[in-house]
């Protein structure tokens, strides 16, 4: 799909972006000279060793951190402050323990326009939307539960729902499945792929699980250790929907091995 979209301007353009924390001699470079384009509706994964600036990259794209040098453009406009209406999910589900799961997922609708101004009058309609979304990730009927009454995997499903409920153009996932057991993690890959295929949002997934990256992404970017540089861009042309069975087939395994080799070389 990258071929068909290349004519259109990409949604996110990063050119020569660096980020340094601290000042003067204390300064450490977290990300060096990152250049990448993300097309509308593309699913990219960023992999690399821990501390390589993957999460930094994510904060730069959403404008939560200003770049030290280089430019980040979204929709052709330079990002200077947090861009609005992005969906975000982290490894830690950060659901609010004082709200039920349903109310947690309603939160973005209370904050993001145009839902915010319609929220009070149309609460019923929004609750229905949340129930549908919950059902689609296998959490139907759990809306009344508090997050702390849910298992880790269920919390992470709710977290995905919260990130998607306002139908954001961009979804940012920072190791969302990192704290889960292998079975739950693989199950949630399927959930995420299904949601993405239905809605085709632009997605940036930060992970250090290579299988996860190859399973989910259209394009995988490999980063070096700190200061992080993009050292490889690899397009994954496997057909969708991909299944867990596929992840053990030669075509898939070869790609994972390639990527792993590249990362190992970088470390040597």
């Amino acid at each position: 799909m990258a071929g068909t979209e290349s004519a259109v301007a990409p949604l996110v353009e990063m050119s020569g972006v660096s980020l340094a924390y601290g000042r003067g001699k204390e300064q450490t470079l977290a990300l060096a000279d990152a250049t990448m384009n993300i097309a509308q509706g593309e699913f990219i994964a960023v992999v690399g060793p821990s501390g390589c600036g993957k999460s930094t990259l994510m904060k730069l794209v959403t404008g939560l951190l200003p770049a030290t040098s280089g430019t980040v453009k979204v929709h052709g406009e330079v990002v200077k402050r947090p861009i609005k209406g992005v969906g975000m999910a982290f490894q830690n589900a950060t659901l609010m323990p004082w709200r039920t799961t349903r109310d947690n997922i309603l939160l973005p609708l209370e904050v993001v326009e145009p839902h915010k101004r319609r929220f009070r009058a149309n609460r019923g309609e929004y609750v229905e939307r949340v129930e549908k979304l919950l059902a689609s990730v296998g959490l139907g009927g759990f809306g009344d539960k508090y997050p702390w009454q849910l298992s880790g995997g269920m919390q992470q499903r709710s977290n995905l729902c919260r990130a998607l409920v306002h139908e954001p153009e961009i979804l940012m996932l920072d190791e969302p499945f990192g704290a889960l057991d292998a079975f739950t993690r693989e199950e949630l890959w399927g959930v995420l792929q299904k949601l993405w295929m239905e809605r085709r949002f632009t997605c940036v997934l930060v992970t250090h699980d290579l299988r996860e990256a190859v399973y989910l992404a259209d394009t995988v970017y490999v980063m070096s250790k700190r200061p992080g540089r993009v050292i490889l861009k690899r397009e994954i042309e496997l057909p969708r929907p991909r299944t867990l069975e596929d992840t053990f087939k030669p075509g898939f395994v070869d790609i994972v091995h390639d990527l792993r080799d590249r990362i190992h070389k970088e470390h040597a």
């Binding site: 904060k59 959403t62 939560l64 947090p82 861009i83 609005k84 209406g85 992005v86 969906g87 975000m88 982290f90 830690n92 950060t94 609010m96 939160l107 973005p108 209370e110 904050v111 993001v112 326009e113 919260r162 306002h166 940012m172």
Partner: peptide
């Protein structure tokens, strides 16, 4: 939690909304 703050800010929440919500 900083992540909670990031979630709110990326939704476009104002400081007042972060405080009240």
């Amino acid at each position: 939690e900083p992540e909670m703050r990031d979630v709110m800010r990326s939704l476009g929440a104002s400081n007042y909304e972060i405080l009240t919500k």
